[in-house]
Every structure is written in C-alpha cells, then in structure tokens.
Simulated assay, not measured.
Amino acid sequence: MTNAVKHFRFTWRNNRRLHQKPDQESVDACRIWLDAERRLVHPKLIVMLGVTAAQSLLKRPVTISRERSRIFQLDEQCSGLVTVHPSYLLRLPNEEAKAREYARFVEDLRLAQSFITQQSD
C-alpha cells in the first residue's frame, strides 16, 4: 500500500486537523516515489482509492462514477481498478447511502481479490 502524495496539507477547525485535497504540484512532486515503488514491487493490480490516486496514475482527469468497478490495463504488466476513497464513505449524509456505498466498495475489493487470485493460478 502506498500514497500518490507522501505529505498532506491540512487546516485546523475546532481543534481538529482536516485534510485538504492535494494540488497537482504536490501530486507531480511525489510521482518519482510512486514510480520507484511500482518498479520495486511489480504489482499485478493497483487499486486506486479516490480521485487523487486515479488522476495520479492515469495522468488525466477522472470521474469516479465513470471509471469505478472495472479492471483495465495500466501498462503491459499491471492492471488498475478505480474505486472510492474510504473517507468518502464516512462523509455520506445518511445511513442508507452509507450502507449502499459501503456494499459497492466491498464489491470493488472483492473484484480486486478475484482478479489477483485468477492471476496467481
């Protein structure tokens, strides 16, 4: 497991540290580390949790709803899967939405597990 950005910006609100979305400059600055990690690990599948991770790896604008829940080739040796960031699940406004989106998230992780299992056979 890794992060597309290695440091986090935040603001203080009511004695709480709230993380802010990284800007493109931060994503670009950390790209060297992400590329090095990929060369060392040789992952068969990268699960991109959220927009920042997806945009960092895909190098283009990403809409989670359009890209989510399908496996596709990133390059000749690695596939990718886009899903929501777990913090998204915590911010949903009601219990029905939380349950629905959590179930979709679990299905995405099961899809990743199934893909890896098939690749190992």
Rank of each mutant, 00 (worst) to 15 (best):
S120Q: 09
D108E: 09
E25W: 11
G50P: 07
Q118G: 00
R91Y: 09
E95Q: 15
D35E: 14
T52N: 06
R17D: 03
R31Q: 14
R38Y: 09
N14H: 14
N15I: 10
M48D: 10
A112F: 00
R110W: 04
S69D: 15
E37C: 04
M1L: 05
P61R: 02
S56A: 14
I71K: 02
E76G: 01
I46E: 10
I116N: 07
Q24E: 13
Y102D: 07
T52V: 13
A97E: 13
Q20V: 08
D121T: 12
F10S: 15
V84L: 04
H85T: 00
A36H: 10
F115P: 05
I46S: 00
A4N: 12
R104D: 06
I116T: 11
I32C: 12
N3S: 09
L18R: 13
T63F: 01
S87T: 08
Y88A: 00
V82M: 03
L90M: 06
S26G: 12
A97L: 11
F115M: 12
A4Q: 11
K21R: 13
L109D: 09
E76P: 03
Q24V: 12
A103T: 13
L90E: 12
L40G: 11
G80W: 03
A112Y: 00
I64S: 11
A99R: 13
L89P: 03
Y102E: 11
L90D: 09
D23C: 06
H19Y: 14
R16D: 11
K59S: 01
Q113A: 08
V41Q: 07
R9P: 01
S114Q: 06
V27D: 11
